[in-house]
């Protein structure tokens, strides 16, 4: 049974794509959560939809077959432009990032539906991009996914310390002379690439879930940035591969299955996590330092007793 799944060429492509998405999405998601831009992936996803429709329109205009040959490149270009634009808006500080995201959400969806109509398609054609359609992954799609994933991973892991610095404390990064603007644009572009990579697997509407939910799971069990990223990647790969495997046996949407699975993991971990941390030996967080006030003798004795209790 298992062998049957693994020898199916459709499934092989799908599994490779799911594996790559499972790793890359949480890497980028960690930076987005760190800079409190959890919904950025959603904003980019919506804009990518306009890109898909635009690619479709251009493809139809050039008489290409099939019509959607240019859909993925269109999504990549639109997502990159949209993410850089949001960074520009954020930098100029006139509009809050929140508001800029909202405008991107609406503009992206509306633009996508409008353009697909002009291209002679229907909004039904957009469904496979909105909700994922892993069974239609072609060899060309797979190669694009592999290349983009490698780019995202190389940047996200290779530059992790610098990206951590700008995401953690942007002002300190500026005062350290780091190329903050360039690093911010890198995060934005890498997020855009991840969205388009994940588009085929989970769809544009759910791509952000794959970036954020594994990070939320990881946060329950670890208190370090590096470990959060690593744990999130493990969670991402596990839910992507197992979600996809489920869809091989049952006829359900792979994107929705993966995301529901991720949220289920989150729920289970948040129920179990308190019991895991309770077992750890407690240590006294209070340093043994004298007070700034002179205490009466009785209070000094009580302080000594309290120190003993903590130990």
């Amino acid at each position: 049974m298992m062998m049957m799944m693994l020898t199916d060429p459709f499934m092989q492509r799908a599994l490779i794509a799911a594996l790559l998405v499972g790793v890359t999405a949480p890497v980028v998601g960690t930076y987005l959560v760190q800079r409190k831009l959890s919904l950025l992936g959603d904003g980019i996803g919506h804009v990518a939809l306009t890109g898909v429709a635009l690619g479709w329109l251009v493809g139809a205009g050039m008489g290409l077959s099939p019509n959607d040959t240019l859909a993925v490149p269109g999504a990549v270009i639109a997502a990159v432009i949209g993410s850089v634009l949001i960074e520009v808006v954020r930098r100029r500080g006139r509009t809050s990032g929140d508001l800029a995201l909202a405008i991107m959400f609406y503009g992206g969806i509306a633009g996508g539906v409008l353009l697909i109509g002009i291209a002679g398609g229907s909004s039904g054609n957009l469904m496979q991009y909105l909700f994922g359609s892993i069974s239609t992954v072609s060899d060309a799609d797979l190669w694009l996914t592999v290349v983009l994933s490698l780019v995202v991973l190389a940047i996200g892991v290779g530059l992790r310390h610098a990206l951590f610095s700008v995401s953690h404390d942007e002002e300190f990064a500026i005062a350290s002379g780091l190329p903050v603007w360039a690093l911010n644009v890198i995060v934005a572009v890498v997020s855009a690439l991840t969205v388009t990579v994940a588009m085929r697997v989970v769809g544009l509407l759910l791509v952000s879930a794959l970036m954020i939910v594994p990070v939320a799971v990881a946060q329950q069990v670890t208190h370090a940035f590096g470990r959060t990223m690593l744990t999130a990647c493990v969670v991402g790969v596990v839910v992507c591969v197992s979600g996809l495997t489920i869809t091989y046996w049952y006829n359900v949407s792979p994107g929705a299955t993966i995301v529901v699975l991720a949220i289920a993991v989150y729920a289970v971990v948040s129920l179990v996590a308190p019991f895991l941390t309770r077992g750890r030996p407690a240590h006294d967080p209070h340093p043994d330092l004298p007070d700034d006030v002179d205490l009466p003798a009785a209070a000094t004795e009580r302080a000594a007793a309290a120190a003993k209790e903590c130990r």
């Binding site: 760190q34 800079r35 409190k36 610095s165 953690h168 990070v215 590096g226």
Partner: peptide
Amino acid sequence: GGGIPSTAQEVVASG
């Protein structure tokens, strides 16, 4: 700070 907890080592290393 960020939305993700970081250790003293990670924060100081960014210096």
